[in-house]
Design a binder for these strands. Structure first.
Lengths: 135, 135
DNA sequence: GCAGGAGTTTACGTTAACGTAAACGTAAGC
DNA sequence: GCTTACGTTTACGTTAACGTAAACTCCTGC
């Protein structure tokens, strides 16, 4: 009963397809791989990106929009896979999650106040504009 | 009727006072001045920071938390002062405000989804932890 | 009168995140 | 068989945002 006839996602992507889609250079994508954030399959020398690789790339770019470094983004992405066997590591992960949450909440507050100030600035600008036109 | 007996804000600050308060180095503060984000008064050679300077510094650091470059932060701070005389400039300012708003809204969405994913990651971690303890 | 602390300028060093360019391989179309 | 497009590796260049260090001034306490 689900509407399953959406554009139908490709099963793999070339490096330039991804570069185009996300408006970044192929150089950047290879750089992320160098830094251990991606490791696409290969056909011969050529990189082949799976839908999962694409998601990882998306996460990297979202991290960038939030001002995260590549290292931070890698940490966040690493929180996803359940490959954290032992208890100690899991507890460190929980701590890590808590820290990220706190950081995001701070960012939320920052955005909120900035939004308010943008409202003020806009109001002042509109007033000044009105004065300039009236005169 | 207002509770006016708060700690009473100082009328000026030294560079090291500000550095301590915001946990940054004096080098950073001077750097921000170099880049035109601050221009404190001077007594002889020595920099004297007004409460307004302090606010500007706060805004710079808030910008950093949101991943803004110093140039971006300067632009945002510049939206505050009403020194934008002519109509053309005011309209450019309004456009600029709109763009920043859009960027902030994107960041809000990014944070929202990331928060959700942190919740998931935490749940998975707790489950895995429970399994490890039970066994 | 001098050591210590806080301030200053000047200048070179460093890290992250790519950009840019060279030099090469491979497959497609004409 | 040659160009054109897309891919590869390797390597040096660049920008932002400071860190670090040297060399100096000025004031304060003892």
């Amino acid at each position: 009963m689900k509407a399953k006839d959406s554009p139908a996602e490709p099963s793999s992507y070339s490096i330039s397809e991804l570069a185009r889609e996300f408006d970044i250079t192929t150089r950047a994508i290879r750089f992320y791989e160098d830094k251990g954030l991606l490791c696409p399959a290969r056909r011969g020398q050529t990189r082949i990106y799976s839908p999962e690789d694409r998601v990882r790339l998306k996460l990297i770019l979202r991290g960038k929009r939030l001002g995260f470094s590549l290292d931070e983004s890698r940490e966040i992405i690493d929180m996803y896979d359940p490959a954290h066997g032992n208890v100690e590591q899991l507890q460190r992960l929980l701590l890590h999650i808590e820290q990220k949450r706190a950081q995001l909440q701070q960012q939320l507050r920052d955005i909120e106040s900035l939004m308010g100030e943008l409202d003020d600035a806009e109001a002042r600008a509109r007033t000044a504009l009105q004065l300039n036109i009236d005169s």
